[in-house]
Design a protein around this nucleic acid. Structure first.
Lengths: 318, 318
DNA sequence: AGTATTTATATAACTGGTTATGCCAATATA
DNA sequence: TATATTGGCATAACCAGTTATATAAATACT
């Protein structure tokens, strides 16, 4: 135990494994004590057959959640010990149904009526001696894992931690290069750079900032890995457009897009915007998802200078 | 899960195993997510080396409680991945000390500082969502098993249950045969039947009951499997002697001797005895143990009609 | 000094399970 | 009616660990 005390909660799996190994070992001794010529791991088979009567190997495997070959092997051994008898199904010669012999029945009954009772009593006594109920705790964890696996939970924690490392700062001329390159990267990957792109990316001051827009930059560990612009629109329906969002592929899974988007929307609110507009393309599925997560809703088609735009969205600011 | 819901607390081992298997599986995915070229089961090795620096294979095996061949194998694989470097000890060419390379160190640090933190947070969150604290419960069970193994606990429960099936009843003439045979069995196995034996066993009414003594019989499932007599003594120091205790070998481990002894002592008390005496022989170790358990203490040698008697004991009745 | 014992490691053999594969019977499909 | 697919089972190959055994170096014991 000593070693795992220093490794933190990650030892949980190992501790569970060790406890269960210890119990398995003791199970062997317990079976020996009762002097039945039965291996402990046959228990599920004996139990299920004593409940149901006759089953095929596959059915047993299914019920006790073992693999079919493992049950095949156990059944073979149990046949040798005269605990089971096989019966090939007449109508369907593939099916090998298997049932308890009298000896098997007797053994099963003894295990269930006597041995299990003793184990039950011992476990109950243990449970009553402990302050924290292992039995109930297990049930809860089984339930919690059914809801969401440990993997997903760790992934979430990772995201939360990563997000804390991300800082959103306003654009300065130091970010001119990165503002262009991050956008050029995805645009030229999926589409082609257009006239409008070059205008905005080569002259952000002139075409964005000086017209009353904003650009936000996401720093991850101090390194700029994401950018997003808020562009003043000249349109009766909308005040501002969210555009030119680019996030480095090496910064995936760090919620940078989400944090950038939220930050830009805050800026828009500060500037008194009522509605924010954006254009995108449906091939960019993660982007569309992100916009939805940010609260954007699809709107009817509008004229646009970008040929790649095939979807338009808006978000009301409250 | 469904299946085990019907098998009772005996499923505890399986449930622990399944939960730990699930966690192991997720551990694999978690390691993958962090993109380190490290197998999850190397973790203990990485961890312990990052703590201690350099160790031999046997030392590692010891610390992380794996078998030495298993560590040998892991070390071989880790050497291939440049995570470790080997160094044969100059003074003792048997020793292969092993330490982390820079790459190994970097990986270990990442796992410990980043990955473990995320897992910790996820586990903590799970713990806080559950009413019953699995972590604490595990610690308690580890402690409880250190005190007394599951096997021993089940053995105790079995004994308690068996004891309930034993009934102690007073002698009637129906038990005359069994009273003799159970005693003759052990006497002639270890010693020889003596004159005094035949007197008491062939004529219990005359030599025991009519003189103010008692005989108790232990029934197991209705079958008489143990006997014990309380014999009135004609002695200034003692009122009664506990004697002629015989238990069938097929009734071992059912506390029959203990229950008989207790019952006979109760009879003695009812009869107003202050002290009970007995004689035995030191080759009968289980018997001597039993007498001690019943509260008898060795006393100085006294004259006796039995040649086999080489130890005398007494018990004060309060 | 020479032999016996212990220690550190490697290798082999086994174990209790798994997934992958192959075979044959039964059923569905063209 | 021939052919493809599916279902039940056995067998093979593999896996991650174990225990048992072999080898060689170091140490202890006459």
């Amino acid at each position: 135990m000593n070693f795992f005390d220093r490794t933190g909660k990650i030892a949980l799996g190992s501790r569970l494994r060790m406890l269960s190994a210890q119990m398995t070992e003791d199970a062997g001794k317990i079976y020996e004590m009762y002097q039945l010529d039965v291996s402990p791991n046959w228990f599920p088979v004996l139990f299920v057959l004593s409940q149901v009567g006759a089953l095929t190997i596959t059915e047993i495997a299914d019920k006790i959640s073992h693999s079919q070959p493992s049950v095949t092997k156990m059944v073979k051994e149990m046949l040798k010990k005269d605990l089971l008898e096989k019966q090939v199904c007449k109508e369907d010669k593939r099916r090998n149904t298997v049932r308890l012999t009298d000896k098997g029945e007797k053994n099963a009954r003894h295990i269930i009526d006597v041995q299990c009772k003793d184990v039950d009593a011992a476990v109950d006594q243990l449970l009553s001696q402990a302050n924290h109920n292992l039995w109930e705790a297990l049930a809860e964890w089984e339930f919690l894992f059914e809801q969401k696996s440990l993997f997903e939970r760790v992934k979430e924690q990772r995201k939360i931690r990563e997000a804390k490392k991300v800082k959103i700062v306003p654009y300065t001329s130091a970010f001119k290069e990165i503002f262009k390159s991050l956008n050029e990267e995805w645009i030229s990957k999926y589409f082609v750079m257009e006239k409008e792109d070059y205008k905005a990316l080569d002259h952000p001051e002139e075409y964005i900032l000086n017209l009353g827009g904003k650009i936000m930059v996401a720093l991850y560990d101090g390194e700029p890995l994401g950018v997003c612009a808020l562009i003043k629109m000249n349109d009766p329906d909308y005040d501002y457009e969210l555009a030119k969002m680019g996030v480095s592929p090496k910064a995936q899974g760090k919620s940078i897009g989400y944090l950038l988007g939220k930050s830009v929307l805050e800026e828009a609110k500060k500037l008194g915007a009522k509605k924010v507009y954006l254009e995108s393309n449906t091939v960019l599925k993660p982007a569309i998802n992100l916009y939805q997560k940010l609260g954007f809703k699809k709107v009817a088609h509008r004229p646009t200078p970008y040929s790649r735009s095939n979807i338009q969205m808006e978000k009301m600011l409250e």
